[in-house]
Write a protein that binds this DNA or RNA. Structure first.
Lengths: 197, 197
DNA sequence: GGTTAAGTGGACCAAACGGTCCACATTGGT
DNA sequence: ACCAATGTGGACCGTTTGGTCCACTTAACC
Protein backbone atom coordinates (compact mmCIF):
# COMPACT_ATOMS: atom_id res chain seq x y z
CA UNK A 1 0.00 0.00 0.00
CA UNK A 2 1.30 3.46 -0.95
CA UNK A 3 2.35 5.81 1.82
CA UNK A 4 -0.61 7.94 2.86
CA UNK A 5 -0.25 11.70 2.79
CA UNK A 6 -0.16 13.62 6.03
CA UNK A 7 1.77 13.33 9.23
CA UNK A 8 2.62 9.79 10.36
CA UNK A 9 1.58 8.35 13.73
CA UNK A 10 4.05 8.99 16.52
CA UNK A 11 3.17 5.79 18.33
CA UNK A 12 2.69 2.16 17.53
CA UNK A 13 -1.05 1.43 17.75
CA UNK A 14 -0.33 -2.19 18.55
CA UNK A 15 1.91 -1.35 21.48
CA UNK A 16 -0.56 1.21 22.78
CA UNK A 17 -3.44 -1.24 22.48
CA UNK A 18 -1.51 -3.86 24.38
CA UNK A 19 -0.69 -1.38 27.12
CA UNK A 20 -4.37 -0.46 27.42
CA UNK A 21 -5.26 -4.13 27.57
CA UNK A 22 -2.92 -4.68 30.49
CA UNK A 23 -4.40 -1.72 32.34
CA UNK A 24 -7.97 -2.93 31.84
CA UNK A 25 -6.88 -6.39 32.84
CA UNK A 26 -5.37 -5.11 36.06
CA UNK A 27 -7.96 -2.55 37.08
CA UNK A 28 -11.17 -3.33 35.22
CA UNK A 29 -13.10 -1.02 32.93
CA UNK A 30 -14.70 1.51 35.26
CA UNK A 31 -11.66 1.71 37.46
CA UNK A 32 -9.35 2.57 34.57
CA UNK A 33 -9.69 6.31 34.06
CA UNK A 34 -8.89 8.16 30.87
CA UNK A 35 -5.84 9.59 32.61
CA UNK A 36 -4.64 6.12 33.58
CA UNK A 37 -5.05 4.98 30.01
CA UNK A 38 -3.19 7.92 28.51
CA UNK A 39 -0.35 7.39 30.94
CA UNK A 40 -0.16 3.66 30.27
CA UNK A 41 -0.45 4.05 26.51
CA UNK A 42 1.88 7.04 26.36
CA UNK A 43 -0.29 8.94 23.93
CA UNK A 44 -2.38 12.08 24.08
CA UNK A 45 -6.12 12.15 24.46
CA UNK A 46 -6.60 13.33 20.89
CA UNK A 47 -4.58 10.42 19.59
CA UNK A 48 -6.59 7.98 21.61
CA UNK A 49 -9.88 9.29 20.31
CA UNK A 50 -8.54 9.52 16.79
CA UNK A 51 -7.08 6.04 16.78
CA UNK A 52 -9.55 4.12 18.93
CA UNK A 53 -12.71 6.20 19.08
CA UNK A 54 -13.25 6.31 22.81
CA UNK A 55 -13.00 4.38 26.04
CA UNK A 56 -15.55 1.70 25.34
CA UNK A 57 -14.48 1.13 21.74
CA UNK A 58 -10.91 0.84 22.98
CA UNK A 59 -12.00 -1.64 25.59
CA UNK A 60 -13.75 -3.82 23.07
CA UNK A 61 -10.62 -3.92 20.96
CA UNK A 62 -8.66 -4.83 24.08
CA UNK A 63 -10.98 -7.74 24.69
CA UNK A 64 -10.34 -9.03 21.20
CA UNK A 65 -6.62 -8.49 21.59
CA UNK A 66 -6.67 -10.34 24.88
CA UNK A 67 -8.42 -13.26 23.29
CA UNK A 68 -5.93 -13.32 20.41
CA UNK A 69 -2.93 -13.26 22.73
CA UNK A 70 -4.25 -15.76 25.25
CA UNK A 71 -5.64 -18.24 22.79
CA UNK A 72 -2.41 -18.10 20.82
CA UNK A 73 -0.39 -18.64 23.94
CA UNK A 74 -2.56 -21.51 25.12
CA UNK A 75 -2.56 -23.07 21.68
CA UNK A 76 1.24 -23.00 21.62
CA UNK A 77 1.44 -24.39 25.13
CA UNK A 78 -0.89 -27.22 24.17
CA UNK A 79 1.09 -27.96 21.04
CA UNK A 80 4.37 -28.19 22.93
CA UNK A 81 2.96 -29.96 25.99
CA UNK A 82 3.95 -33.55 26.70
CA UNK A 83 0.31 -34.53 27.01
CA UNK A 84 -3.16 -33.07 26.91
CA UNK A 85 -3.65 -33.77 30.59
CA UNK A 86 -0.26 -32.26 31.37
CA UNK A 87 -1.34 -29.09 29.61
CA UNK A 88 -4.58 -28.98 31.58
CA UNK A 89 -2.71 -29.44 34.85
CA UNK A 90 -0.23 -26.73 33.91
CA UNK A 91 -3.11 -24.46 32.98
CA UNK A 92 -4.88 -24.92 36.28
CA UNK A 93 -1.69 -24.58 38.27
CA UNK A 94 -0.96 -21.22 36.72
CA UNK A 95 -3.22 -19.67 39.36
CA UNK A 96 -0.69 -20.66 41.98
CA UNK A 97 1.66 -18.01 40.63
CA UNK A 98 -0.89 -15.39 41.51
CA UNK A 99 -1.43 -16.84 44.96
CA UNK A 100 2.31 -17.00 45.57
CA UNK A 101 2.57 -13.34 44.64
CA UNK A 102 4.86 -14.11 41.71
CA UNK A 103 2.54 -11.93 39.66
CA UNK A 104 -0.41 -9.75 40.41
CA UNK A 105 -3.74 -11.50 40.92
CA UNK A 106 -5.56 -9.94 38.04
CA UNK A 107 -7.47 -13.01 36.94
CA UNK A 108 -8.71 -13.31 33.38
CA UNK A 109 -9.93 -10.26 31.46
CA UNK A 110 -12.89 -12.13 30.01
CA UNK A 111 -14.12 -13.42 33.35
CA UNK A 112 -13.40 -10.12 35.06
CA UNK A 113 -15.48 -8.37 32.45
CA UNK A 114 -18.29 -10.89 32.78
CA UNK A 115 -18.32 -10.12 36.48
CA UNK A 116 -18.09 -6.36 36.09
CA UNK A 117 -20.75 -5.95 33.41
CA UNK A 118 -22.90 -9.03 33.82
CA UNK A 119 -24.95 -8.40 30.69
CA UNK A 120 -25.59 -4.70 31.03
CA UNK A 121 -24.05 -3.84 27.67
CA UNK A 122 -24.91 -6.02 24.66
CA UNK A 123 -21.67 -5.33 22.77
CA UNK A 124 -19.56 -6.26 25.75
CA UNK A 125 -21.72 -9.27 26.53
CA UNK A 126 -20.99 -10.49 23.02
CA UNK A 127 -17.26 -9.90 23.47
CA UNK A 128 -17.38 -11.91 26.68
CA UNK A 129 -19.35 -14.70 25.05
CA UNK A 130 -16.84 -14.87 22.22
CA UNK A 131 -13.91 -14.95 24.63
CA UNK A 132 -15.60 -17.76 26.47
CA UNK A 133 -16.12 -19.73 23.25
CA UNK A 134 -12.48 -19.39 22.30
CA UNK A 135 -11.27 -20.58 25.70
CA UNK A 136 -13.70 -23.43 25.52
CA UNK A 137 -12.27 -24.36 22.15
CA UNK A 138 -8.75 -24.72 23.54
CA UNK A 139 -9.92 -26.75 26.50
CA UNK A 140 -11.94 -28.97 24.20
CA UNK A 141 -8.87 -29.67 22.10
CA UNK A 142 -6.88 -30.50 25.20
CA UNK A 143 -9.54 -32.86 26.52
CA UNK A 144 -9.84 -34.65 23.18
CA UNK A 145 -6.09 -35.07 22.99
CA UNK A 146 -6.06 -36.45 26.52
CA UNK A 147 -8.77 -38.89 25.52
CA UNK A 148 -6.73 -40.07 22.56
CA UNK A 149 -3.71 -40.40 24.81
CA UNK A 150 -5.73 -42.48 27.23
CA UNK A 151 -5.59 -40.08 30.18
CA UNK A 152 -9.31 -39.34 30.04
CA UNK A 153 -11.85 -42.09 29.30
CA UNK A 154 -13.08 -41.77 25.69
CA UNK A 155 -16.72 -42.10 26.72
CA UNK A 156 -16.67 -38.87 28.72
CA UNK A 157 -18.44 -35.92 27.10
CA UNK A 158 -15.51 -33.77 25.96
CA UNK A 159 -17.63 -30.66 25.45
CA UNK A 160 -18.93 -30.83 29.00
CA UNK A 161 -15.49 -31.49 30.41
CA UNK A 162 -14.25 -28.39 28.59
CA UNK A 163 -17.09 -26.37 30.11
CA UNK A 164 -16.19 -27.77 33.47
CA UNK A 165 -12.58 -26.74 33.07
CA UNK A 166 -13.46 -23.19 32.11
CA UNK A 167 -15.79 -22.94 35.09
CA UNK A 168 -13.22 -24.43 37.44
CA UNK A 169 -10.52 -22.09 36.25
CA UNK A 170 -12.80 -19.14 36.80
CA UNK A 171 -13.56 -20.31 40.33
CA UNK A 172 -9.90 -20.77 41.12
CA UNK A 173 -9.02 -17.29 39.88
CA UNK A 174 -11.75 -15.75 41.98
CA UNK A 175 -10.68 -17.68 45.06
CA UNK A 176 -7.14 -16.55 44.46
CA UNK A 177 -8.29 -12.94 44.29
CA UNK A 178 -10.23 -13.46 47.48
CA UNK A 179 -6.95 -14.31 49.18
CA UNK A 180 -7.15 -18.10 49.42
CA UNK A 181 -3.91 -19.74 50.54
CA UNK A 182 -1.82 -21.89 48.27
CA UNK A 183 -2.74 -25.15 49.97
CA UNK A 184 -6.45 -24.60 49.40
CA UNK A 185 -5.88 -23.84 45.75
CA UNK A 186 -3.65 -26.86 45.31
CA UNK A 187 -6.23 -29.11 46.92
CA UNK A 188 -8.97 -27.71 44.73
CA UNK A 189 -6.88 -28.20 41.60
CA UNK A 190 -6.30 -31.81 42.55
CA UNK A 191 -10.04 -32.34 42.90
CA UNK A 192 -10.75 -30.73 39.56
CA UNK A 193 -8.21 -32.98 37.85
CA UNK A 194 -9.63 -35.99 39.61
CA UNK A 195 -13.06 -35.25 38.16
CA UNK A 196 -11.72 -35.59 34.63
CA UNK A 197 -10.77 -39.26 34.81
CA UNK B 1 -32.33 1.54 77.35
CA UNK B 2 -33.98 4.91 78.06
CA UNK B 3 -35.29 6.92 75.15
CA UNK B 4 -32.60 9.28 73.88
CA UNK B 5 -33.38 12.96 73.70
CA UNK B 6 -33.72 14.61 70.33
CA UNK B 7 -35.60 13.80 67.19
CA UNK B 8 -36.06 10.12 66.35
CA UNK B 9 -34.91 8.53 63.11
CA UNK B 10 -37.43 8.71 60.29
CA UNK B 11 -36.28 5.47 58.72
CA UNK B 12 -35.45 1.94 59.79
CA UNK B 13 -31.64 1.57 59.60
CA UNK B 14 -32.04 -2.16 59.09
CA UNK B 15 -34.33 -1.77 56.12
CA UNK B 16 -32.13 0.91 54.60
CA UNK B 17 -29.03 -1.23 55.06
CA UNK B 18 -30.68 -4.19 53.39
CA UNK B 19 -31.75 -2.01 50.47
CA UNK B 20 -28.18 -0.76 50.07
CA UNK B 21 -26.93 -4.34 50.20
CA UNK B 22 -29.22 -5.34 47.36
CA UNK B 23 -28.03 -2.41 45.27
CA UNK B 24 -24.36 -3.21 45.82
CA UNK B 25 -25.11 -6.82 45.12
CA UNK B 26 -26.73 -5.98 41.82
CA UNK B 27 -24.41 -3.25 40.57
CA UNK B 28 -21.14 -3.56 42.45
CA UNK B 29 -19.43 -0.92 44.55
CA UNK B 30 -18.07 1.57 42.02
CA UNK B 31 -21.12 1.30 39.83
CA UNK B 32 -23.51 2.17 42.65
CA UNK B 33 -23.54 5.96 42.88
CA UNK B 34 -24.53 7.96 45.90
CA UNK B 35 -27.70 8.95 44.07
CA UNK B 36 -28.56 5.31 43.40
CA UNK B 37 -28.03 4.50 47.05
CA UNK B 38 -30.18 7.36 48.33
CA UNK B 39 -32.96 6.36 45.97
CA UNK B 40 -32.76 2.71 46.94
CA UNK B 41 -32.51 3.41 50.66
CA UNK B 42 -35.14 6.17 50.58
CA UNK B 43 -33.16 8.46 52.84
CA UNK B 44 -31.39 11.78 52.42
CA UNK B 45 -27.68 12.16 52.01
CA UNK B 46 -27.31 13.68 55.46
CA UNK B 47 -29.04 10.71 57.02
CA UNK B 48 -26.80 8.30 55.17
CA UNK B 49 -23.63 10.02 56.32
CA UNK B 50 -24.99 10.41 59.84
CA UNK B 51 -26.09 6.80 60.12
CA UNK B 52 -23.45 4.98 58.12
CA UNK B 53 -20.50 7.32 57.78
CA UNK B 54 -20.00 7.20 54.02
CA UNK B 55 -20.06 4.99 50.97
CA UNK B 56 -17.25 2.63 51.87
CA UNK B 57 -18.28 2.25 55.52
CA UNK B 58 -21.80 1.51 54.34
CA UNK B 59 -20.47 -1.04 51.92
CA UNK B 60 -18.52 -2.84 54.60
CA UNK B 61 -21.63 -3.07 56.74
CA UNK B 62 -23.49 -4.41 53.71
CA UNK B 63 -20.89 -7.12 53.32
CA UNK B 64 -21.42 -8.21 56.90
CA UNK B 65 -25.17 -8.04 56.50
CA UNK B 66 -24.93 -10.12 53.36
CA UNK B 67 -22.93 -12.75 55.18
CA UNK B 68 -25.40 -12.82 58.05
CA UNK B 69 -28.39 -13.23 55.76
CA UNK B 70 -26.81 -15.76 53.43
CA UNK B 71 -25.23 -17.90 56.06
CA UNK B 72 -28.46 -17.92 58.05
CA UNK B 73 -30.41 -18.89 54.97
CA UNK B 74 -27.97 -21.62 54.01
CA UNK B 75 -27.84 -22.90 57.57
CA UNK B 76 -31.63 -23.19 57.63
CA UNK B 77 -31.67 -24.85 54.23
CA UNK B 78 -29.09 -27.36 55.40
CA UNK B 79 -31.03 -28.06 58.59
CA UNK B 80 -34.24 -28.73 56.73
CA UNK B 81 -32.67 -30.60 53.81
CA UNK B 82 -33.30 -34.31 53.39
CA UNK B 83 -29.59 -34.96 53.15
CA UNK B 84 -26.26 -33.16 53.12
CA UNK B 85 -25.69 -34.10 49.50
CA UNK B 86 -29.21 -32.98 48.62
CA UNK B 87 -28.44 -29.60 50.13
CA UNK B 88 -25.22 -29.33 48.15
CA UNK B 89 -27.01 -30.22 44.94
CA UNK B 90 -29.74 -27.70 45.66
CA UNK B 91 -27.10 -25.09 46.41
CA UNK B 92 -25.28 -25.64 43.13
CA UNK B 93 -28.49 -25.78 41.14
CA UNK B 94 -29.55 -22.39 42.43
CA UNK B 95 -27.42 -20.84 39.67
CA UNK B 96 -29.84 -22.28 37.13
CA UNK B 97 -32.46 -19.78 38.28
CA UNK B 98 -30.16 -16.99 37.21
CA UNK B 99 -29.48 -18.63 33.85
CA UNK B 100 -33.17 -19.22 33.27
CA UNK B 101 -33.81 -15.54 33.90
CA UNK B 102 -36.02 -16.31 36.90
CA UNK B 103 -33.94 -13.76 38.77
CA UNK B 104 -31.18 -11.37 37.83
CA UNK B 105 -27.70 -12.82 37.47
CA UNK B 106 -26.05 -10.87 40.23
CA UNK B 107 -23.85 -13.64 41.54
CA UNK B 108 -22.59 -13.54 45.10
CA UNK B 109 -21.69 -10.27 46.78
CA UNK B 110 -18.56 -11.72 48.36
CA UNK B 111 -17.20 -13.14 45.12
CA UNK B 112 -18.24 -10.08 43.15
CA UNK B 113 -16.34 -7.94 45.61
CA UNK B 114 -13.30 -10.18 45.45
CA UNK B 115 -13.32 -9.71 41.70
CA UNK B 116 -13.91 -5.97 41.80
CA UNK B 117 -11.33 -5.09 44.42
CA UNK B 118 -8.87 -7.96 44.25
CA UNK B 119 -6.91 -6.89 47.30
CA UNK B 120 -6.64 -3.19 46.67
CA UNK B 121 -8.27 -2.20 49.96
CA UNK B 122 -7.20 -4.04 53.12
CA UNK B 123 -10.50 -3.53 54.99
CA UNK B 124 -12.51 -4.89 52.09
CA UNK B 125 -10.07 -7.72 51.54
CA UNK B 126 -10.68 -8.75 55.14
CA UNK B 127 -14.45 -8.56 54.66
CA UNK B 128 -14.12 -10.79 51.63
CA UNK B 129 -11.90 -13.24 53.48
CA UNK B 130 -14.39 -13.43 56.32
CA UNK B 131 -17.29 -13.98 53.94
CA UNK B 132 -15.32 -16.76 52.33
CA UNK B 133 -14.64 -18.40 55.68
CA UNK B 134 -18.30 -18.34 56.60
CA UNK B 135 -19.36 -19.90 53.32
CA UNK B 136 -16.68 -22.48 53.69
CA UNK B 137 -18.03 -23.28 57.14
CA UNK B 138 -21.50 -24.08 55.82
CA UNK B 139 -20.12 -26.21 53.01
CA UNK B 140 -17.92 -28.03 55.48
CA UNK B 141 -20.92 -28.87 57.64
CA UNK B 142 -22.81 -30.11 54.60
CA UNK B 143 -19.93 -32.31 53.48
CA UNK B 144 -19.48 -33.80 56.94
CA UNK B 145 -23.17 -34.55 57.17
CA UNK B 146 -23.06 -36.20 53.75
CA UNK B 147 -20.12 -38.28 54.93
CA UNK B 148 -22.07 -39.43 58.00
CA UNK B 149 -25.03 -40.21 55.79
CA UNK B 150 -22.84 -42.30 53.51
CA UNK B 151 -23.15 -40.14 50.39
CA UNK B 152 -19.53 -39.05 50.47
CA UNK B 153 -16.75 -41.47 51.39
CA UNK B 154 -15.58 -40.76 54.95
CA UNK B 155 -11.91 -40.82 53.95
CA UNK B 156 -12.27 -37.75 51.72
CA UNK B 157 -10.77 -34.54 53.10
CA UNK B 158 -13.89 -32.60 54.08
CA UNK B 159 -12.07 -29.27 54.35
CA UNK B 160 -10.75 -29.59 50.82
CA UNK B 161 -14.10 -30.68 49.46
CA UNK B 162 -15.65 -27.59 51.04
CA UNK B 163 -13.00 -25.43 49.36
CA UNK B 164 -13.75 -27.17 46.12
CA UNK B 165 -17.46 -26.46 46.45
CA UNK B 166 -16.91 -22.78 47.13
CA UNK B 167 -14.61 -22.53 44.13
CA UNK B 168 -17.01 -24.45 41.90
CA UNK B 169 -19.94 -22.29 42.93
CA UNK B 170 -17.95 -19.20 42.15
CA UNK B 171 -17.05 -20.54 38.72
CA UNK B 172 -20.66 -21.42 37.98
CA UNK B 173 -21.87 -17.96 38.94
CA UNK B 174 -19.30 -16.32 36.70
CA UNK B 175 -20.17 -18.57 33.79
CA UNK B 176 -23.81 -17.76 34.32
CA UNK B 177 -23.02 -14.06 34.21
CA UNK B 178 -21.02 -14.61 31.07
CA UNK B 179 -24.18 -15.91 29.43
CA UNK B 180 -23.63 -19.67 29.49
CA UNK B 181 -26.67 -21.68 28.53
CA UNK B 182 -28.57 -23.86 30.95
CA UNK B 183 -27.34 -27.13 29.52
CA UNK B 184 -23.69 -26.18 30.03
CA UNK B 185 -24.35 -25.20 33.60
CA UNK B 186 -26.29 -28.39 34.29
CA UNK B 187 -23.50 -30.49 32.84
CA UNK B 188 -20.91 -28.68 34.91
CA UNK B 189 -22.96 -29.11 38.08
CA UNK B 190 -23.19 -32.82 37.40
CA UNK B 191 -19.41 -33.02 37.08
CA UNK B 192 -18.89 -31.08 40.29
CA UNK B 193 -21.18 -33.43 42.18
CA UNK B 194 -19.48 -36.42 40.63
CA UNK B 195 -16.15 -35.28 42.01
CA UNK B 196 -17.46 -35.46 45.57
CA UNK B 197 -18.11 -39.18 45.69
C1' DG C 1 -42.81 26.48 77.53
C1' DG C 2 -38.16 26.92 77.07
C1' DT C 3 -33.95 24.36 76.40
C1' DT C 4 -31.21 20.83 74.56
C1' DA C 5 -30.08 16.97 71.71
C1' DA C 6 -30.65 14.78 67.64
C1' DG C 7 -32.31 14.13 62.48
C1' DT C 8 -33.25 15.99 57.86
C1' DG C 9 -33.30 18.51 53.40
C1' DG C 10 -30.90 20.95 50.25
C1' DA C 11 -27.45 24.11 48.89
C1' DC C 12 -22.87 23.87 48.05
C1' DC C 13 -18.02 22.13 47.01
C1' DA C 14 -13.72 20.70 44.71
C1' DA C 15 -12.20 17.04 42.01
C1' DA C 16 -12.53 13.74 38.47
C1' DC C 17 -15.01 11.98 34.79
C1' DG C 18 -15.37 11.12 29.51
C1' DG C 19 -15.47 13.80 25.59
C1' DT C 20 -14.89 17.79 22.10
C1' DC C 21 -12.44 21.24 19.70
C1' DC C 22 -8.99 23.90 17.62
C1' DA C 23 -4.49 25.93 16.75
C1' DC C 24 -0.33 24.07 15.41
C1' DA C 25 3.11 20.53 13.70
C1' DT C 26 4.51 17.34 10.38
C1' DT C 27 4.36 14.78 6.44
C1' DG C 28 3.67 13.52 1.03
C1' DG C 29 2.34 15.24 -3.47
C1' DT C 30 2.77 18.69 -7.02
C1' DA D 1 7.57 26.42 -2.26
C1' DC D 2 3.15 25.62 -1.47
C1' DC D 3 -0.89 22.81 -0.56
C1' DA D 4 -3.64 19.15 1.14
C1' DA D 5 -3.99 15.70 4.54
C1' DT D 6 -3.24 13.84 8.76
C1' DG D 7 -1.49 13.74 13.82
C1' DT D 8 -0.82 16.04 18.29
C1' DG D 9 -1.07 18.85 22.57
C1' DG D 10 -3.80 21.30 25.46
C1' DA D 11 -7.53 24.21 26.57
C1' DC D 12 -12.11 23.67 27.41
C1' DC D 13 -16.83 21.58 28.24
C1' DG D 14 -20.85 19.89 30.90
C1' DT D 15 -21.82 16.17 34.01
C1' DT D 16 -21.29 13.37 37.83
C1' DT D 17 -18.71 12.00 41.62
C1' DG D 18 -18.35 11.50 46.93
C1' DG D 19 -18.52 14.58 50.61
C1' DT D 20 -19.49 18.81 53.76
C1' DC D 21 -22.25 22.29 55.90
C1' DC D 22 -25.94 24.69 57.86
C1' DA D 23 -30.59 26.29 58.62
C1' DC D 24 -34.58 24.14 60.07
C1' DT D 25 -37.48 20.59 62.23
C1' DT D 26 -38.78 17.34 65.75
C1' DA D 27 -38.64 15.12 69.82
C1' DA D 28 -37.55 14.47 75.19
C1' DC D 29 -36.64 16.58 79.55
C1' DC D 30 -36.95 19.94 83.31
Amino acid sequence: MPAAPGRPLEFDPDTALTAAMHLFWRKGYENSSMLDLLEAMQISKSSLYQAFGGKQALFERCMTRYGDLMIGQLHDALASAHSGLGFIRQFLESVLDEARGVCEARGCLVMNTANEFARRDPAIAEAVAQGLRRFHGVMLAAVRRAQIEGDIPPDRDAVMLANYLVSSMSGLKTLSKAGADEASLKGTIALVLKALT
